[in-house]
Design a protein around this nucleic acid. Structure first.
Length: 431
RNA sequence: GGGGUCGUAGCGUAGCGGUUUAACGCGCAUGCCUGUCACGCAUGAGAUCGCGGGUUCAAAUCCCGUCGACCCCGCCA
């Protein structure tokens, strides 16, 4: 008994096939029983007539192998139907589902969905989020590989944080203290000295005590870093092209999943507009009466307003903000010699939220020493990192995209936790 | 870390201007139903109203504490 996938059933009209999956829904109408079966490829309606005892032991979630004849049936929504002949139960349900996964609308709060994650992930509307997320990660890899990037895998247990400060998790490492990586920053820069162009898809950890709809304490960072650049605009150009590629491909592969969210797959302009932070701030003052000039960053409301502006003015849901002040960016950020006090760094905002930070990095050993001295950092603590710069490092830069953030914004999810299979936040460690 | 809101059957909610058998929808169980696709109809089970204390003749309802959740802000992807 070979398995047929549900979405292939249409190729077996008037033939008997075995399909394997979960009972998704049962509708008993007396002498006739309709059963919706779910496998990873889709749904099919099965029908039992005259021997309804076949359905007696079935409940929502029962895992079965089903034998039936595929027939054309106009009365069925999909136009085909499976006339069930035999049912082999593989696994029974021990308890009723705490959530109803077969309704058009999900009627549960986020907290409940997360508490019963193994169940809630079986909602077609919820699993679609992660189908799309998998596509986003795949397309990120795929595109960068076409641009001759090499994928790298860097340690997540580290001896020092890239950003420093208190937002770093401590872990016991035998008789030493180690930390969970906040970013692959140091390692991807080191690897520019090897492969010139590298990328990584991996988890990063932030011990910040935040509790918001856009923060997680563990998230997936899509990173890349590349050598021999002119300036930060090269990094932005590549991200622009990456996004064009991603969304073009998503349009081909994920149209079905997007339907659940009633969201348009976003359009990426040939050239995403960019503004210096100060330009953005004076626009906010002029157009929206916000007083923010001189602030070192945009606050969440500013981000929403500037995205609104970008949409209206440039017809772009994406906008780059560049030239953040030197003292608000990490030590490895390159200053812009033509704009003293400001850096060759940028954020990418998408639908009101920052989804990327990047920029050009310092690449000369002496410049690191000068910068670290100025910031009263001890270079001895970063020997493994600085070593790479002693032996020749080209001008380079890179960025990081928050996978959950881009997923959430693309699908219009209100809370970033919805875009994480098993989110880690300030009070959630289970599941 | 600061501010705000909220905890009532498995899930989503109503009741909070004090006195009932704590209500409704979904789900579940039983029965009826041969074209359902939010199937329908009938009957039924299921809640020490987050927890602890207080006020009162009387508390889901008011007060205090506690635990948990959600939203906003700082910080960030």
């Amino acid at each position: 008994m070979e398995r047929a996938l549900i979405n292939q059933a249409v190729n077996f009209i008037n033939q008997e096939i075995w399909v394997w999956g979960w009972i998704h829904k049962i509708r008993k109408l007396g002498g006739i029983v309709f059963i919706i079966l779910r496998d990873y490829s889709g749904f099919i309606q099965g029908v039992i007539e005259n021997q309804t005892d076949l359905s007696e032991e079935l409940s929502i979630g029962t895992v079965v192998k089903l034998k039936g004849e595929v027939v054309k049936e106009e009365r069925a929504v999909q136009g085909i139907e499976l006339k069930i002949k035999e049912i082999k139960i593989q696994s029974r349900v021990v308890e009723d589902y705490p959530l109803q996964i077969n309704k058009k609308k999900i009627s549960a709060n986020l907290d409940t969905l997360l508490d019963y994650r193994s169940v809630s992930l079986r909602y077609p509307q919820i699993s679609a989020i992660f189908k799309i997320q998998a596509q986003i990660a795949k397309l990120f890899r795929e595109y960068l590989i076409t641009q001759n990037f090499t994928e790298i895998f860097t340690p997540k247990i580290v001896c020092a944080g890239a950003e420093g400060g208190s937002n770093i998790f401590k872990v016991e490492y035998f008789d030493k203290t180690a930390y969970l990586a906040q970013s692959p920053q140091f390692y991807k820069q080191i690897m520019v000295g090897v492969f010139e162009r590298v990328f990584e898809v991996g988890s990063v950890f932030r011990a910040e005590q935040h509790n918001t709809a856009r923060h997680l304490n563990e998230y997936v960072s899509l990173d890349y870093e590349m050598g021999f650049i002119e300036n930060h605009l090269d990094i932005m150009r590549l991200e622009n092209n990456l996004l064009i590629y991603m969304l073009k491909e998503l349009k081909k592969t994920s149209q079905e999943e997007f339907k659940f969210f009633e969201m348009e797959i976003p359009f990426v302009p040939e050239e995403i507009p960019h503004l210096k932070l100060r330009e953005a701030q004076s626009i906010l003052e002029k157009n929206y009466h916000k007083t923010c000039l001189g602030e070192p960053d945009l606050d969440p409301e500013d981000e929403r307003l500037i995205c609104q502006y970008s949409k209206e003015k440039y017809n772009s849901e994406f906008i780059f903000i560049t030239h953040f002040p030197s003292d608000k960016r990490p030590f490895y950020t390159m200053d812009d010699s033509e704009d003293p006090g400001y850096t060759k760094s940028f954020d990418l905002l998408f639908r009101g939220l920052e989804i990327t930070t990047g920029g050009q990095r310092i690449n000369r050993y002496e410049d690191y020493l000068t910068k670290m001295k100025k910031l009263r950092m001890n270079p001895d603590n970063f020997n493994f990192y600085l070593e790479a710069f002693k032996y020749g490092m080209p001008p380079h830069g890179g960025l990081a995209i928050g996978l959950e953030r881009i997923t959430a914004r693309m699908l219009g999810l209100a809370n970033i936790r919805e875009a994480s299979l098993f989110p880690r936040d300030i009070n959630r460690l289970i599941p």
